[in-house]
């Protein structure tokens, strides 16, 4: 099994993501730099970490979505390789159009940094199979632009297709329909604002994020 974490200039959760993947998978993920032209061959899983890629210039995630490595990431996602984008990684995935919608400035204008309760809406995906549907988990958020927006018809469609992975139990940022994380149509791309990699061991104050990595790594065993 081969996993990778992509680092953009301004990423700051790439190491936490790397450690989470290493601890759960037992193997060191490959570190990929944004300027690399290609991803390493044979990747089974790609993570886009949180942070402030390119200083959030233009719009959060907009510059990173157009960086050289993202062409390879989009191609891999289209081949079915699982891709997880957390926080800024989620913003990059929407800007790269791998996921619908956009992440706008938080409704209250404030940067939010605290642990929030999330409801697991879809426990049938490769990212969420170790959770129970309807379960409430505690995961930290840390973002300024996490206010999920999509048009009504798009929201109806993704809800109808079971593509809302997580909802906020208490809407902390104004996201439409309390959406905290969504899947693509095929189910191999997940974007979420909360940080599961910051909750993988008791010393983090909680370990509810660990099962996300166990789910996806478990789905790859034998790969």
């Amino acid at each position: 099994m081969k996993t990778a974490v992509v680092t953009f200039p301004g990423s700051n959760c790439d190491r936490d993501m790397w450690v989470a993947l290493r601890d759960v998978s037992g193997r060191e993920p490959v570190k990929v730099w944004h300027g690399d032209a290609e991803l390493p061959d044979g990747l089974d899983f790609i993570a886009l970490p949180g942070g402030f890629s390119y200083g959030d210039y233009l719009r959060s995630g907009a510059m990173a979505a157009n960086s050289p490595i993202m062409r390879s990431v989009v191609a891999a996602a289209e081949r079915g390789v699982p891709v997880l984008g957390v926080c800024n990684g989620f913003q990059v995935l929407t800007e790269a159009r791998l996921l619908p919608g956009a992440l706008m400035r938080n409704a209250a204008q404030h940067f939010i940094c605290r642990t929030v309760p999330l409801v697991v809406e879809n426990a049938g995906s490769i990212f969420t199979s170790a959770y129970a549907k309807g379960e409430t988990i505690q995961i930290p958020v840390a973002h300024h632009d996490g206010n999920y927006f999509a048009a009504d018809d798009v929201l109806d469609r993704i809800e109808g297709e079971g593509r809302v992975a997580f909802r906020y139990a208490e809407n902390c940022n104004g996201s439409r329909r309390d959406i905290a994380g969504i899947l693509n149509e095929r189910g191999n791309v997940l974007g979420m604002m909360p940080h599961p990699e910051r909750a993988i061991e008791a010393d983090h104050g909680g370990s509810d994020g660990r099962r996300l990595f166990e789910s996806v790594i478990g789905s790859l065993v034998g790969a």
Partner: peptide, 9 residues
């Protein structure tokens, strides 16, 4: 359409 605006919003 590709960069300067996000056509979703």
């Amino acid at each position: 359409q590709k960069l300067l605006a996000n056509m979703v919003i």
